[in-house]
């Protein structure tokens, strides 16, 4: 049996070498075929090895600490705290830091697809939907942002200043969150520091960071951009209401609008 295994290993090595040669000599078709062979052979090897190995009792994954809420609820929970359209990565790190959850960004992407399907089949059946943010100019889904359907439309439309404005708002929300916690955890503090470090006069150093000061500094900069941003957003939201149906209002429209803009330039 071990001899068979060694034999297999030799064949696998040989195949691997062939794959690399095919890849460097610019023969993608051959490389693909060989790769498939290789995976098959590796599977055979794995099975053979498993047969040889004494069965190990699988203790199962250790009980996960953290949230028992469904992923959808967890995302909602984090977004309610953030209160602005946010990148999946931020949703995950906020939920992990503040609520001790175990979300993954991959899960989040599939979630959003489910939401759209659910809304299309029976609109408004749920109290809220996880939806897209829209770009102010073309009203298409803004890249990589998740929002909540119950928010005012102007909050879900993003203009050129919105990234900064929303960044400052999250900084403020996190600062307040830290203030509320009796003993803020290291992950929450590190998260806040990512904001504080990029806001003028928010904190001189990680160790000297005070949440109230962070919030004040963020509010000060926010006042510089807030009005202009709101004007953009409201104008675009108004336009969206007249141009889009309710599914598109939540999940954005697609190509059609792109073409229109493209041809009139």
């Amino acid at each position: 049996m071990t001899e068979a295994l060694e034999n297999l290993e030799r064949q696998i090595d040989e195949l691997r070498a062939q794959v690399r040669r095919a890849a460097t000599s610019g023969d993608p078709v051959r490389a693909r075929e060989l790769r498939a062979d290789l995976r098959r052979m590796e599977q055979v090897w794995e099975n053979a090895l498993a047969a040889l190995t004494a069965p190990v009792v699988d203790m199962g994954a250790p009980a996960q600490a953290g949230s028992i809420l469904p992923a959808r609820e967890q995302v909602h929970q984090a977004l309610v705290l953030l209160a602005v359209p946010s990148a999946p990565k931020l949703v995950v790190s906020v939920h992990t830091a503040v609520f001790g959850g175990d979300l993954s960004s991959v899960k989040l992407t599939s979630l959003k697809r489910d939401e759209e399907r659910s809304f299309r089949s029976s609109p408004h059946a749920r109290p809220y939907y996880l939806c897209n943010a829209l770009t102010y100019d073309r009203l298409v889904p803004a890249r990589g942002l998740v929002a909540v359907s119950t928010w005012p439309l102007a909050r879900r439309v993003v203009g050129p200043l919105s990234a900064r404005v929303d960044f400052l708002r999250v900084g403020i929300a996190l600062a307040h969150q830290v203030e509320r916690m009796s003993t803020p955890t290291a992950p929450v503090l590190r998260l806040l520091w990512q904001y504080a470090a990029n806001i003028p006069d928010a904190a001189p150093a990680f160790d000297a960071m005070q949440p109230a000061v962070v919030a004040t500094a963020a509010t000060a900069e926010l006042s510089v951009h807030e009005d202009a941003d709101l004007a953009h957003r409201e104008e675009a939201a108004e336009r969206a209401r007249t141009q889009l149906d309710e599914t598109h209002l939540l999940f954005g429209s697609s190509l059609k609008v792109v073409r229109r803009i493209a041809t009139d330039s």
Partner: peptide, 27 residues
């Protein structure tokens, strides 16, 4: 070597990261 990275190392690392039980992990 970049082709080693692509053809050997990346799949092997992905398999290690994805291993869900002790046998798979050891393999």
């Amino acid at each position: 070597d970049p082709t080693f990275d692509r053809e050997v190392l990346a799949p092997a690392m992905a398999a290690y990261d994805a291993a869900s039980n002790p046998v798979a992990r050891r393999t």
